[in-house]
Design a protein around this nucleic acid. Structure first.
Lengths: 332, 332
DNA sequence: TATGGTCTGGCAACCGATTGCCGGACCGAC
DNA sequence: GTCGGTCCGGCAATCGGTTGCCAGACCATA
């Protein structure tokens, strides 16, 4: 039996303070939130009483007349995808630092659920951060028409977007592979609808030839370990000696498939992933990867939303070399 | 330059509908939320108008007179700890299923920040889920006095608590190790303040002798890969042939230290972790672990909070055998 | 002393719902 | 025809803040 809700004292309001001190509630409100609007003496008395009575402002009551709720909505397709952990933390940190509250929602990969969730949240939030949105561009613009909104990891025209610069890390990875002697590269692409997968492919496609690397696209595939695992046969058939996987999960899946099939990594196949997710350095060999600054991205998205000065430099990616790459044919 | 907030249409209210139809706002409210209170005809007209005008209820406005905000607060010490991913997802799913909203907050391991965060959220939420709380028991009880509250993974008297049954999985793991021929076991403990670490140790201590296993505690240590890594020398010195780590992160850290030190796993040392976190099967060998039903735990905590029928059976743990255990001295 | 400005506090409307109470309309029964 | 009950809609208060407007107090200046 749960405890019968009883005995919860109702919290102190500005009316309690006003009555206690014989002033009007509006004076209390101004003393607490409009510096200089009341006399120093009154303000001090009111602050003391508020402290003594344990007063906490009720954000809901404040939100009603002002429209400022003090909460932000973070919507992503899949909460448990480790790619987003640092982003979630970054967003939460910055939100809390500014005294705001973060509500978290998951679209479970469904555009329709994403739209309904966002609409449900509209009256409760001051703005949205949309990560890996599954909505069509028009849906995102429609949402942006009702609330401030920042889109992360996707470009939508007419909307504030935050996307890391894929090129630096990717170029470094290509340099690294080319220098090791690779000549044939395969790109394992993610979901067809993924803007980020397309972008990564396009840059790799653009940059590989100049380094003497041939490149083929294999996919699209599910952006999961299963998706990576399923791609091994096509990778081997392609004759590539190195693989760029759309993300670390696919890279890990591919690595696992290699182990099961007796394909040596990095001897027969070098593997590079994207994102540097938690766990990508647990494997053996650990997965080389192109790190995205996702924690910074989450924090910056929130800062941009609440209009705080956005002093962060453009967000570059970075190649993280690890044991999963080597010259082709290297080893036993 | 951010876009100048302009041109956002204000959402439809029940007053808009009432004016449109020439009825009173109270009738609109009742038509939409008090089945049978208005005539079928009126209700149909109002529903049609609400649909046509794109009406969405404003949860904040509703919360003010009723006190029901429709949102729940989930507070945990560390958002990015992979242990909680499934729990967060479970809580979010169930929350959304019931049309509620989940706000996420992180105490960053600080009791003081945890208390302040909770207090700030009090007026905005209908209740709390506290996970791995760093508050003293009295602090938790004080919070429970102002809002309904469920504590996960810790027992606090006088408060609704949800803790998985550690014994079944742990017994199975001990059986497994004993059957493999191990005689000397070490337990790598986590933070001194962790209720769960203490509990796991106590049960292992209780159950090991009956299986012919000696057991020693090594620690306390940080519940991270670094903490596990740091413990290797003491583990080796203890003469144990098998290790039970407080959690998978420590197990992974220990495994990594073994690799660096040339200690064969599972040949020289068998390793078992706790929680079955994401990534614990990426290692080689993959880490055997005692799985906690954390997704179910998150969902159940929310269900309990909102008073939905709690039909779930008691939550048992489960041993997941993997390559990190073998008979002592096994292998090359 | 009259005038005008600044400082300070109160009054009351407002945000968008919910809900207790009232009363008119309508029904059937006696 | 009267009475009692049910059905259905409206009025107005309420939740807890915010804020535009007003007025009295006080000060300085002419």
């Amino acid at each position: 039996m749960a405890d019968a809700d009883g005995g919860r004292r109702s919290p102190t309001t500005i009316y309690d303070i006003a009555r206690e001190l014989g002033v009007s509630p509006s004076t209390v409100s101004r003393a607490l939130h409009k510096p200089g609007r009341t006399s120093a003496k009154t303000e001090a008395r009111i602050r003391a009483a508020a402290e003594a009575l344990g007063y906490r402002i009720n954000p809901l009551a404040r939100a009603l007349p002002t429209g400022r709720t003090g909460t932000l909505g973070l919507i992503l397709s899949d909460i448990t995808n480790p790619v987003w952990f640092e982003l979630i933390r970054g967003a939460e940190r910055v939100t809390a630092e500014h005294g705001r509250t973060l509500v978290l929602a998951e679209s479970q990969e469904s555009p329709d659920l994403e739209r309904r969730t966002a609409e449900r949240l509209v009256p409760s939030v001051d703005g949205f951060v949309l990560v890996a949105s599954r909505l069509p561009d028009a849906g995102i613009r429609a949402l942006a028409a009702s609330k401030p909104l920042v889109v992360v990891n996707r470009l939508v025209s007419g909307v504030d977007c935050l996307v890391p610069d894929v090129a630096p890390g990717l170029r470094a990875a290509l340099d690294h592979l080319a220098a090791a002697g690779h000549r044939a590269l395969a790109f394992l692409s993610g979901p067809a609808a993924s803007w980020m997968s397309r972008t990564r492919w396009e840059i790799a496609f653009e940059e590989a030839p100049a380094r003497g690397l041939s490149i083929v696209e294999i996919g699209p595939g599910a952006p999961t370990t299963a998706g990576g695992q399923a791609a091994l046969r096509r990778v081997l058939a392609s004759g590539a000696s190195a693989v760029l996987a759309y993300n670390d999960l696919m890279a890990i899946g591919l690595l696992r498939a290699c182990r099961d099939a007796g394909v040596a990594v990095p001897g027969r196949l070098s593997i590079v992933g994207f994102d540097d997710i938690f766990g990508s350095d647990f494997t053996s060999p650990p997965i080389a990867t192109i790190r995205s600054p996702l924690g910074a991205l989450g924090g910056d998205a929130v800062r941009r939303l609440i209009g705080a000065r956005d002093a962060s430099p453009p967000l570059a990616t970075e190649f993280v070399p690890r044991g999963s790459t080597a010259p082709p044919g290297y080893g036993p």
